[in-house]
Design a protein around this nucleic acid. Sequence first.
DNA 1: GAATATTCCTGAATGC
DNA 2: TGCATTCAGGAATATT
Length: 282
Amino acid sequence: MPELPEVETIARGVQERLRGDRIVEAWFGSHREPFKTPPARQAKGLEGRAILAVHRTGKHIVCELSTAYGNPIVESAGGIGAQWIVHLGMTGRLLVTTPDTPLAAHTHARLSLASGRELRFMDPRRFGRLDFRDLSRNPAFSAAGADPLTVTAAEFAALFRPRKLPIKAALLNQKLLSGVGNIYADESLFRAGIRPPRLSGRLTRAELEGLRLALREVLEHAIRLGGSSVSDYVDADGVRGFFQLEHCVYMRTGLPCRRCQTPIQRILLAGRGTHYCSQCQR
DNA sequence: GAATATTCCTGAATGC
DNA sequence: TGCATTCAGGAATATT
């Protein structure tokens, strides 16, 4: 499932290929989900706009768009154009294709570009979300929580010290940190040597700082490897990532810990499958 | 107000 | 073989 590294990989891929391109025509499916803004309004809003930049905010892919009719504005002008915001949910994919590529099942959006290419969004489970914002009427999109790659030690401690819930549950709360999902919560806790059920507020400052650094390290490593392909994740070109080969605990229930050979445990925490090593994590 | 449970949804895996 | 059941989970919403 797409978390920060996968979303970052896709955003970079789309940015590389489509920056400066123009949306000629937009087609949207008729399902109720995954549209946050009604599909007809998104299609109308997107057509005619140029793609100025594509970047990641939390687990969201944000396409920065020009004003509607030509005149691509400079990025620094901000607040004049529009944004197309893509959240991949569990099974969402955003792919750059050619028009003759057969339409995959569960395709919910198809943007035809001036270059002749297409940007397609598919999502079998429809947990993803597509949103359109006209910046002349709405504020720009911003993530609810801090970014795990840039959060400072003081900010991190301030977010987690007052919480009375398992640290694993706190890491998944997007209002605290934006971008951490089940895979990287488990992997960062393993690398920090902290058991997932421990209460956030009971961790020492040193443990919290170790966790912040482990989280940043694991996310940066995963980005370098193009993310984790555990179910069906692929980047903007349909290429799988490789970080799943580096997983120490996630989906390794019963397998020997890579560090101490103790079988990896799986428990349910905050409604999520949670994996850890009872020997390495205290 | 914070923490936890429920809900959405489909494909893959499992059971009979 | 094939149909029915179970399970996974991000995040909004509902409940405790």
